[in-house]
Design a protein around this nucleic acid. Sequence first.
DNA 1: GGCTGGCCCTGTACGC
DNA 2: TGCGTACAGGGCCAGC
Length: 269
Amino acid sequence: MPELPEVETVRGQLEPVLVGRTFTDGGAHPSAKFATAPHVVGATVEAVRRRGKYLLVDLDDDRELVLHLGMTGRFLVGAEATAPEHDPYVRAWWLLDDGSRLAYRDVRRFGRIAVVPAGDHRSLPTLHHLGPEPFDDAFSADHLWQAVRASSMRVKTQLLNQRVVAGVGNIYADEALWAARVNPAARTITRPQAARLRDAVREALAAGLENGGTTLRDYRTVIGDEGRNQHTLRCYGRAGEPCERCGTELRRRVIDARGGTWCPTCQAR
DNA sequence: GGCTGGCCCTGTACGC
DNA sequence: TGCGTACAGGGCCAGC
Protein backbone atom coordinates (compact mmCIF):
# COMPACT_ATOMS: atom_id res chain seq x y z
CA MET A 1 0.00 0.00 0.00
CA PRO A 2 1.64 3.22 -1.13
CA GLU A 3 2.75 5.47 1.73
CA LEU A 4 5.07 8.48 1.60
CA PRO A 5 8.21 6.63 0.38
CA GLU A 6 6.30 4.81 -2.34
CA VAL A 7 4.50 7.96 -3.51
CA GLU A 8 7.75 9.95 -3.50
CA THR A 9 9.43 7.23 -5.59
CA VAL A 10 6.57 7.38 -8.09
CA ARG A 11 6.72 11.20 -8.11
CA GLY A 12 10.40 11.16 -8.98
CA GLN A 13 9.72 8.85 -11.92
CA LEU A 14 6.67 10.75 -13.20
CA GLU A 15 8.37 14.15 -13.08
CA PRO A 16 10.64 13.71 -16.13
CA VAL A 17 7.79 12.10 -18.06
CA LEU A 18 5.24 14.84 -17.39
CA VAL A 19 6.89 18.22 -16.80
CA GLY A 20 6.59 20.42 -19.90
CA ARG A 21 4.22 18.01 -21.60
CA THR A 22 0.65 18.85 -22.66
CA PHE A 23 -2.23 16.41 -22.25
CA THR A 24 -3.74 15.90 -25.71
CA ASP A 25 -6.33 13.23 -24.91
CA GLY A 26 -7.64 11.25 -21.97
CA GLY A 27 -10.27 8.89 -20.70
CA ALA A 28 -11.50 7.51 -17.41
CA HIS A 29 -13.61 4.94 -15.61
CA PRO A 30 -17.12 6.38 -15.01
CA SER A 31 -16.77 6.23 -11.21
CA ALA A 32 -16.77 9.69 -9.62
CA LYS A 33 -13.39 8.76 -8.14
CA PHE A 34 -11.74 8.88 -11.57
CA ALA A 35 -14.18 10.54 -13.99
CA THR A 36 -12.53 13.99 -13.94
CA ALA A 37 -9.16 12.70 -15.19
CA PRO A 38 -9.78 13.80 -18.84
CA HIS A 39 -10.56 17.36 -17.69
CA VAL A 40 -6.83 18.15 -17.89
CA VAL A 41 -6.75 17.72 -21.68
CA GLY A 42 -5.24 20.89 -23.18
CA ALA A 43 -3.26 21.77 -20.05
CA THR A 44 0.52 21.67 -19.73
CA VAL A 45 2.30 20.23 -16.70
CA GLU A 46 4.51 22.69 -14.81
CA ALA A 47 5.54 20.52 -11.85
CA VAL A 48 4.90 17.20 -10.14
CA ARG A 49 4.84 17.55 -6.36
CA ARG A 50 3.96 15.35 -3.40
CA ARG A 51 2.10 16.19 -0.23
CA GLY A 52 1.70 13.31 2.20
CA LYS A 53 0.46 10.40 0.10
CA TYR A 54 -0.99 12.71 -2.57
CA LEU A 55 0.62 13.51 -5.91
CA LEU A 56 -0.05 17.09 -7.04
CA VAL A 57 0.43 17.87 -10.72
CA ASP A 58 0.60 21.64 -11.27
CA LEU A 59 -1.01 22.73 -14.55
CA ASP A 60 -0.40 25.93 -16.51
CA ASP A 61 -4.05 26.99 -16.25
CA ASP A 62 -4.10 27.53 -12.47
CA ARG A 63 -5.48 24.08 -11.80
CA GLU A 64 -4.05 21.02 -10.13
CA LEU A 65 -4.40 17.35 -10.94
CA VAL A 66 -4.59 15.53 -7.60
CA LEU A 67 -3.80 11.82 -7.54
CA HIS A 68 -4.02 9.32 -4.69
CA LEU A 69 -2.90 5.74 -5.23
CA GLY A 70 -5.15 4.22 -2.58
CA MET A 71 -3.98 0.68 -1.90
CA THR A 72 -3.43 -0.83 -5.31
CA GLY A 73 -2.97 2.19 -7.59
CA ARG A 74 0.05 2.49 -9.88
CA PHE A 75 1.09 4.42 -12.95
CA LEU A 76 2.19 2.90 -16.22
CA VAL A 77 4.04 4.69 -19.00
CA GLY A 78 5.03 3.76 -22.53
CA ALA A 79 4.21 0.31 -23.88
CA GLU A 80 2.88 -0.86 -20.50
CA ALA A 81 0.22 1.88 -20.48
CA THR A 82 -2.46 -0.03 -22.33
CA ALA A 83 -6.05 1.13 -22.84
CA PRO A 84 -8.92 -0.10 -20.62
CA GLU A 85 -10.10 -2.42 -23.40
CA HIS A 86 -6.83 -4.31 -22.98
CA ASP A 87 -6.57 -4.01 -19.20
CA PRO A 88 -9.84 -3.89 -17.25
CA TYR A 89 -8.10 -2.37 -14.24
CA VAL A 90 -6.91 0.79 -16.02
CA ARG A 91 -9.08 3.51 -14.43
CA ALA A 92 -7.68 6.53 -16.30
CA TRP A 93 -5.33 7.21 -19.20
CA TRP A 94 -3.81 10.24 -20.89
CA LEU A 95 -2.02 10.91 -24.17
CA LEU A 96 0.83 13.45 -24.12
CA ASP A 97 1.97 15.81 -26.86
CA ASP A 98 5.17 13.81 -27.43
CA GLY A 99 3.06 10.77 -28.32
CA SER A 100 3.68 8.97 -25.06
CA ARG A 101 0.94 7.49 -22.96
CA LEU A 102 0.27 7.45 -19.21
CA ALA A 103 -2.20 5.10 -17.52
CA TYR A 104 -3.48 4.78 -13.98
CA ARG A 105 -4.21 1.19 -12.95
CA ASP A 106 -6.05 0.43 -9.71
CA VAL A 107 -7.49 -3.04 -9.10
CA ARG A 108 -9.43 -2.25 -5.93
CA ARG A 109 -10.44 1.29 -6.90
CA PHE A 110 -9.39 2.78 -3.56
CA GLY A 111 -7.43 5.50 -5.33
CA ARG A 112 -8.74 8.86 -6.40
CA ILE A 113 -8.22 11.44 -9.14
CA ALA A 114 -9.45 15.04 -8.90
CA VAL A 115 -8.91 18.25 -10.85
CA VAL A 116 -9.16 21.31 -8.59
CA PRO A 117 -8.28 25.01 -8.70
CA ALA A 118 -4.60 25.37 -7.74
CA GLY A 119 -4.21 25.05 -3.99
CA ASP A 120 -7.93 24.57 -3.34
CA HIS A 121 -8.20 21.20 -1.61
CA ARG A 122 -11.53 21.69 0.13
CA SER A 123 -13.10 18.87 -1.89
CA LEU A 124 -10.46 16.48 -0.48
CA PRO A 125 -10.86 16.68 3.31
CA THR A 126 -7.81 14.61 4.21
CA LEU A 127 -5.55 16.67 1.93
CA HIS A 128 -7.17 19.90 3.11
CA HIS A 129 -6.44 19.10 6.77
CA LEU A 130 -3.09 17.40 6.17
CA GLY A 131 -0.53 17.71 8.96
CA PRO A 132 3.13 18.69 8.51
CA GLU A 133 5.50 16.73 6.31
CA PRO A 134 7.52 14.35 8.52
CA PHE A 135 10.87 15.90 7.59
CA ASP A 136 9.70 19.48 8.19
CA ASP A 137 10.71 21.26 11.39
CA ALA A 138 6.98 21.63 12.13
CA PHE A 139 6.85 17.89 12.88
CA SER A 140 8.62 18.30 16.21
CA ALA A 141 8.56 16.08 19.27
CA ASP A 142 6.56 18.77 21.00
CA HIS A 143 4.02 18.92 18.16
CA LEU A 144 3.56 15.14 18.33
CA TRP A 145 3.32 15.10 22.12
CA GLN A 146 0.78 17.93 22.20
CA ALA A 147 -1.31 16.33 19.44
CA VAL A 148 -1.49 12.96 21.20
CA ARG A 149 -2.18 14.64 24.52
CA ALA A 150 -5.02 16.73 23.08
CA SER A 151 -6.88 13.72 21.71
CA SER A 152 -8.37 10.58 23.18
CA MET A 153 -7.49 8.55 20.08
CA ARG A 154 -4.92 5.77 20.21
CA VAL A 155 -1.43 6.84 19.21
CA LYS A 156 -1.28 4.55 16.17
CA THR A 157 -4.63 5.82 14.93
CA GLN A 158 -3.30 9.36 15.28
CA LEU A 159 -0.24 8.51 13.19
CA LEU A 160 -2.52 7.11 10.50
CA ASN A 161 -5.10 9.91 10.37
CA GLN A 162 -2.76 12.27 8.42
CA ARG A 163 -3.54 15.28 10.62
CA VAL A 164 -0.67 14.89 13.06
CA VAL A 165 1.85 14.03 10.39
CA ALA A 166 1.42 13.49 6.64
CA GLY A 167 2.31 10.37 4.70
CA VAL A 168 2.45 7.65 7.38
CA GLY A 169 0.52 4.44 6.70
CA ASN A 170 0.17 1.12 8.44
CA ILE A 171 3.60 -0.30 7.59
CA TYR A 172 5.71 2.67 8.63
CA ALA A 173 3.51 3.34 11.68
CA ASP A 174 4.17 -0.18 12.98
CA GLU A 175 7.89 0.11 12.26
CA ALA A 176 8.16 3.49 13.99
CA LEU A 177 6.15 2.44 17.04
CA TRP A 178 8.29 -0.68 17.43
CA ALA A 179 11.54 1.28 17.06
CA ALA A 180 10.36 3.87 19.59
CA ARG A 181 9.08 1.18 22.00
CA VAL A 182 5.63 2.78 22.10
CA ASN A 183 2.49 0.70 22.58
CA PRO A 184 0.30 1.23 19.50
CA ALA A 185 -2.90 1.19 21.57
CA ALA A 186 -1.73 3.83 24.05
CA ARG A 187 -3.86 6.95 24.30
CA THR A 188 -1.16 9.06 25.93
CA ILE A 189 2.61 9.13 25.62
CA THR A 190 5.36 10.80 27.60
CA ARG A 191 7.44 13.58 26.13
CA PRO A 192 10.54 11.32 25.83
CA GLN A 193 8.37 8.76 24.03
CA ALA A 194 7.14 11.48 21.66
CA ALA A 195 10.75 12.43 20.91
CA ARG A 196 11.68 8.80 20.20
CA LEU A 197 8.57 8.31 18.08
CA ARG A 198 9.19 11.47 16.04
CA ASP A 199 12.73 10.27 15.29
CA ALA A 200 11.52 6.73 14.57
CA VAL A 201 8.89 7.96 12.10
CA ARG A 202 11.56 9.88 10.22
CA GLU A 203 13.99 6.94 10.28
CA ALA A 204 11.36 4.46 9.06
CA LEU A 205 10.32 6.74 6.20
CA ALA A 206 13.94 7.55 5.32
CA ALA A 207 14.69 3.82 5.05
CA GLY A 208 11.65 3.41 2.80
CA LEU A 209 12.80 6.28 0.59
CA GLU A 210 16.35 4.90 0.44
CA ASN A 211 15.01 1.50 -0.63
CA GLY A 212 12.54 2.74 -3.22
CA GLY A 213 9.47 1.80 -1.17
CA THR A 214 8.01 -1.37 0.32
CA THR A 215 6.43 -4.03 -1.93
CA LEU A 216 4.36 -6.53 0.03
CA ARG A 217 1.87 -7.30 -2.70
CA ASP A 218 0.74 -4.66 -5.18
CA TYR A 219 3.15 -1.73 -5.10
CA ARG A 220 5.31 -1.21 -8.20
CA THR A 221 7.19 1.85 -9.39
CA VAL A 222 6.30 3.55 -12.69
CA ILE A 223 8.90 1.41 -14.46
CA GLY A 224 7.49 -1.76 -12.90
CA ASP A 225 10.15 -2.36 -10.27
CA GLU A 226 9.36 -3.64 -6.79
CA GLY A 227 10.57 -1.70 -3.77
CA ARG A 228 13.32 -3.20 -1.61
CA ASN A 229 12.26 -1.99 1.83
CA GLN A 230 10.23 -5.12 2.61
CA HIS A 231 13.56 -6.88 3.27
CA THR A 232 14.42 -4.44 6.07
CA LEU A 233 11.13 -4.46 8.02
CA ARG A 234 11.67 -5.41 11.64
CA CYS A 235 8.10 -5.54 12.91
CA TYR A 236 5.31 -5.14 10.33
CA GLY A 237 4.10 -8.47 9.00
CA ARG A 238 6.37 -10.48 11.32
CA ALA A 239 3.74 -11.72 13.81
CA GLY A 240 4.80 -15.10 15.17
CA GLU A 241 8.50 -14.36 14.72
CA PRO A 242 10.77 -13.41 17.65
CA CYS A 243 11.36 -9.72 18.31
CA GLU A 244 14.95 -9.08 17.23
CA ARG A 245 15.43 -6.84 20.27
CA CYS A 246 14.12 -9.02 23.11
CA GLY A 247 13.19 -12.39 21.58
CA THR A 248 9.51 -12.19 22.58
CA GLU A 249 7.12 -13.47 19.94
CA LEU A 250 5.71 -10.54 17.95
CA ARG A 251 1.93 -10.44 17.96
CA ARG A 252 -0.71 -9.30 15.54
CA ARG A 253 -3.46 -7.03 16.83
CA VAL A 254 -6.31 -5.06 15.27
CA ILE A 255 -6.50 -1.46 16.46
CA ASP A 256 -9.39 0.68 15.20
CA ALA A 257 -9.94 -1.70 12.28
CA ARG A 258 -6.27 -1.64 11.19
CA GLY A 259 -4.27 -4.82 11.57
CA GLY A 260 -0.77 -4.45 12.90
CA THR A 261 2.20 -6.10 14.60
CA TRP A 262 3.80 -5.25 17.93
CA CYS A 263 6.09 -6.64 20.63
CA PRO A 264 4.27 -7.25 23.95
CA THR A 265 7.54 -6.82 25.87
CA CYS A 266 9.33 -3.92 24.17
CA GLN A 267 6.09 -2.07 23.58
CA ALA A 268 4.37 -2.81 26.88
CA ARG A 269 2.32 0.06 28.28
C1' DG B 1 -15.83 19.69 16.71
C1' DG B 2 -14.10 15.11 17.92
C1' DC B 3 -14.57 10.39 17.49
C1' DT B 4 -16.37 5.77 15.91
C1' DG B 5 -17.79 2.57 12.74
C1' DG B 6 -19.52 1.30 8.21
C1' DC B 7 -18.69 1.41 3.51
C1' DC B 8 -16.26 1.21 -0.84
C1' DC B 9 -13.79 -2.63 -3.83
C1' DT B 10 -11.74 -7.02 -5.52
C1' DG B 11 -8.05 -10.56 -5.30
C1' DT B 12 -6.44 -14.04 -2.26
C1' DA B 13 -6.60 -17.52 1.25
C1' DC B 14 -8.98 -20.83 3.54
C1' DG B 15 -12.58 -24.08 5.03
C1' DC B 16 -16.07 -27.17 3.77
C1' DT C 1 -13.05 -28.85 -7.97
C1' DG C 2 -16.08 -25.41 -6.73
C1' DC C 3 -18.43 -22.53 -3.73
C1' DG C 4 -18.92 -19.35 0.19
C1' DT C 5 -16.80 -16.47 3.49
C1' DA C 6 -13.30 -13.66 5.76
C1' DC C 7 -9.78 -10.55 5.20
C1' DA C 8 -6.73 -6.82 3.59
C1' DG C 9 -6.96 -1.28 4.28
C1' DG C 10 -6.93 4.61 3.04
C1' DG C 11 -10.16 7.81 2.84
C1' DC C 12 -14.85 9.45 3.16
C1' DC C 13 -19.01 10.19 5.52
C1' DA C 14 -23.05 9.55 8.54
C1' DG C 15 -24.25 9.46 13.09
C1' DC C 16 -23.44 9.95 17.92
